[in-house]
């Protein structure tokens, strides 16, 4: 199963490292990363695969939200289908 991880917040050093380290600790595989600065905000979108993950999507979503609170970023993890559903005809 694939999910989209979105990280948004004020730019600072080490954001990608922290998020990637956390995902690796849960055996979540990163398939694609795209990152930019939009309106002074760090914005990163990752496509990840949970095929071997040690945690379910709901739990991962909660944990990432908590990680986001710790590092001062807003982190969302969502099943890829929600974007397919809403933005494809």
């Amino acid at each position: 199963m694939r999910a989209v991880v979105t990280v948004v917040g004020k730019d600072k050093t080490g954001i990608i490292a922290k998020v990637a380290t956390f995902l690796a600790s849960r055996e979540v595989n990163i398939l694609d990363i795209s990152q930019t600065i939009m309106d002074e905000y760090f914005t990163m979108i990752m496509m990840v695969d949970l095929g071997r993950a040690t945690t379910g999507l709901a739990e991962l979503s909660k944990e990432c939200r908590e990680l986001g609170e710790r590092i001062g970023m807003s982190i969302h993890v969502q099943h890829e289908d929600i974007f397919n559903a809403m933005h494809g005809v």
Binding site: I45, M47, Q78, F83
Partner: peptide, 16 residues
């Protein structure tokens, strides 16, 4: 891969 606009649009719809 999704484009930024679509992903952020969905997140903004929920958050804001």
């Amino acid at each position: 891969m999704f484009n930024y606009k679509e992903v952020l649009e969905t997140i903004n719809m929920v958050e804001k």
